[in-house]
Amino acid sequence: MVDGQIINIMKYSIHDGPGIRTTVFLKGCPLNCQWCHNPESQRFGQELLYRPDRCIGCGLCLEVCPNGAIIAKSGNLKFLRDQCQVCGACCQVCYAGVRELVGKTMSVREVLAEIEKDVVFYDESGGGVTFSGGEAVMQPVFLLEMLKECRKKEIHTAVETCGYVNLEFLQTISEYVNLFLYDLKLMDSQKHQALTGVPNERILENLSWLVKNHSRVIVRVPIIPGINDDEENVALIGEFVTSLKQGQELHLLPYHKAGVDKYQRLGRTYLLPELQSPGHERLEQIAGKLEQLGLKVKIGGGSK
């Protein structure tokens, strides 16, 4: 059995599918959307999160670092990220929570044990587990095993995907997935590439297949003001999705800034610092347009 690269297992998820859920976030994504609020999910392999505001200056990290990535300078500890090999030695001794490794290897059994802890809540609320990330389908063998195990335990499964994956993988997991949450961002492929790193043809093709062959797909469109909320993009999305299925379910996810600090903690730069969340009125407007095209639209991420 193959292990999974996991960022986080979040309990009491109420916006990633119906009921009370547990969301398993897998590490690694083929896209690098500029607005991503989980930047720590993009790269495969472990990364180091660094929060200097919590430092108590005990210096234990400096003592244990084998790569000289931590130095003392004018009374403070300084982190030289270029030297860091992400070995995690400093994280072991930092009790103040300044240094944290993100990305953990976990076996199918370990992850399942975590998921099973909240079964009573799934039962009571019609919830279950959602596999997200990053891109869950980028770990297809692990994901398939997880889905099979959940199915055996009669736990409702949802998979969130960006769609830029091998269609075969989608096809293979399909029968073990109760609900697909499929992200759609930009219809113009060039623009898509500029802002996410990849073109969108495959994404559209895969969605096509999925809608036609799976019983429950919800299309999710993040609304990023100034980037994809223009009339043209909205109309193109609406027309495309309607062409696949009349009355298709579609959720609008308003952009938020919650993940912005994480870039700093990863030593990266956030490329869209001026972006603000779209107001509720704007979302209603967009929802209206899409509903006119015959889609079943909802604002927000939870669902029944």
Partner: peptide, 11 residues
């Protein structure tokens, strides 16, 4: 003994 306190709190 702040290190000890953080250890107890966080770890």
């Amino acid at each position: 003994h702040e290190g000890v306190r953080q250890l107890l709190l966080n770890k």
